[in-house]
Amino acid sequence: MSNAAPWFDVLATDDLPNDDVIGIQVAGKDIALYTVGEDVFATDNLCTHGNARLCDGFLDGHEIECPLHQGKFDVRDGRPACDPVTEPLRTYPVRIEGSRVFLQIG
């Protein structure tokens, strides 16, 4: 019996934005999904500093800027990139299978 967290089919690759961020709901969680070039990343969608959705922020390369206080996070690992944020974001594994995007949520 496996204790691995389940994978969820969340959307078609055609629905991914180009070098941008979107918000999605998966397994009762608010998730921000980012594309940077050919790579796809996923984090919690709520800034750890303030009550702001990161999908409403500005993606610049691998950094998402919070729309409320302009703090930034690295979308690859969730670490804070500048003040005023100090707490990292939770990240989620992403995999692409064919034309579908899957997230591991546990």
Rank of each mutant, 00 (worst) to 15 (best):
P6A: 02
G23E: 08
D44S: 06
L46A: 12
D56S: 05
P6T: 04
Y92E: 05
R53S: 15
F73Y: 10
Q104F: 01
C82V: 02
V75M: 08
P93W: 04
L11I: 12
F102G: 11
E87Y: 14
D19M: 08
T35A: 03
D74S: 02
P17A: 08
G23W: 03
R90H: 10
G57V: 06
D39K: 12
A27P: 00
A5H: 02
H62Y: 15
D39Q: 13
F73T: 05
N51Y: 11
S99V: 14
G78Q: 06
D44I: 04
K29M: 14
L59D: 15
G57A: 08
S2G: 13
V10C: 03
N45W: 00
I22F: 14
E38Q: 15
I105F: 12
F58I: 12
P67M: 01
L89T: 01
L11T: 07
Q70I: 10
W7R: 09
D56K: 13
Q104A: 04
M1K: 07
E97Y: 01
E97T: 07
L68V: 03
Y92M: 05
D60V: 13
E63A: 03
R100V: 06
N18H: 15
S2D: 14
R76W: 06
M1R: 08
V85Q: 01
A81V: 03
A32R: 05
R100Y: 07
V26L: 01
T48Q: 14
A5K: 05
C66Q: 00
D39R: 15
I22Q: 15
C82G: 02
T35M: 10
V75E: 00
Q70S: 14
C82K: 07
D39F: 09
K72T: 06
I24M: 00
R100N: 04
C82D: 06
H49M: 09
A5M: 04
D30P: 14
Q70M: 09
D74P: 01
D83A: 12
L46G: 11
L89R: 13
N3F: 15
D9W: 07
A4W: 06
E87I: 13
V85K: 01
A12W: 11
R100C: 02
